[in-house]
Nucleic acid binder design. Structure first.
Lengths: 190, 190
DNA sequence: CCTCGAATGTACCATCTGGTACATGAACGC
DNA sequence: GCGTTCATGTACCAGATGGTACATTCGAGG
């Protein structure tokens, strides 16, 4: 694995740039200029455009795993009901500060659904890790949960995040999510 | 509006091609070859690449409105409970035959979230029309419904559709959606 | 039959694309 | 001090890109 320090640092800037400015249709030169280097260096560190894309995808996945881990810890520490945990999680992922990365997530997904080379792994690990983490967290807290329910929660969150990207009123998205939590709790009680 | 017959017919083939083969990163020549014309003609009819993208986006929107209308009629004719209607709707949009268009939807969304020229209208009309249609249909059938709930339903559906595109087991996605319907009905009863 | 406008084909253009070759610089162990 | 290795700059390439100019076909209406 090619993972020198400067490469890793450069990749970080590229992902930040991609989150802020977008990726599709941008040339290596454009990206390079955006992160303060030359397209020559991008090729040097990542081999090709496809290699760069693959590296970006890999880093996004890793960042998601990290976020997942952090959230899981925080949730475990916080304790509380399933509903409280869901709400905490939603507040994290819907935080405006995260928005550029959510945007990048959907951009990469939109490219990946057509099997673009370099994005192969992205779709495979799209949802399963979240379900695994959710199951683990629930088990740790002694909460009952099944995979279908977790998948539904992830799906609803993603749909609402897409709404937010489209400029939906954050309050409305929040209200929808809170309704979801209420539905969930009702089931748990009944 | 430039909307000659041959232009319209050609646009239809372009959208079909885009649904099947993808759009991002494809050159005008590639697209033209895929629909049996020359890149010269694409420029002739749509003015520029951006114009073509705009036309594609517009047609997708129109197709969604058409689908929405068809579904609304069918639902109204079918009658039944809210849960039955939701299930019917889900079966329609998750039909594998529609999958290429769902894929195109997410591809265009992924491009649009970064404000790519030509896609301006797409995000604005992403969700509202569905809420309007849902409200209208519910009113027509005398079913109680609020916008937050509809938004949640649309969001969950989209999230599960993305899962399907990512290769999720259709049975699992179905199960999640059915769980959602059950949650919904529980609330309506309680 | 002739004209006119829409539709197309051919050929071309400047510019940009990803990628490469080669020389140079900087850091670090020996 | 000196080689070696990683990093970087400069210059270049063949091919593709979006877009244009100009000539041609073709069918309908006068």
């Amino acid at each position: 694995m090619n993972a020198s320090a400067s490469r890793q640092e450069m990749l970080g800037r590229v992902v930040a740039y991609a989150a802020a400015e977008g990726l599709t249709g941008r040339s290596l030169r454009e990206i390079a200029a955006g992160v303060g280097t030359s397209h020559r260096m991008l090729i040097y560190h990542f081999g090709s455009r496809e290699g760069l894309l693959a590296a970006i995808v890999a880093l996004i996945e890793q960042q998601q795993r990290d976020l997942l881990g952090t959230l899981a810890d925080r949730l475990a520490a916080a304790g509380g009901s399933a509903g409280q945990l869901m709400l905490l999680l939603w507040q994290q992922v819907s935080d405006p500060a995260l928005r550029p990365y959510v945007r990048l997530f959907f951009e990469v997904a939109g490219v990946a659904v057509h099997g673009t080379p370099g994005t192969e792994g992205f779709l495979d690990k799209l949802t399963e890790p979240w379900l695994d983490a959710g199951e683990a967290a629930a088990g740790q807290l002694g909460l009952p949960v099944d995979r279908d329910a977790l998948r539904l929660g992830v799906a609803a969150s993603r749909g609402l995040l897409l709404d937010l990207l489209a400029g939906a009123d954050p309050a409305a998205a929040d209200a929808s999510y809170r309704l979801f939590v209420r539905l969930w709790e009702q089931q748990a009680e009944g």
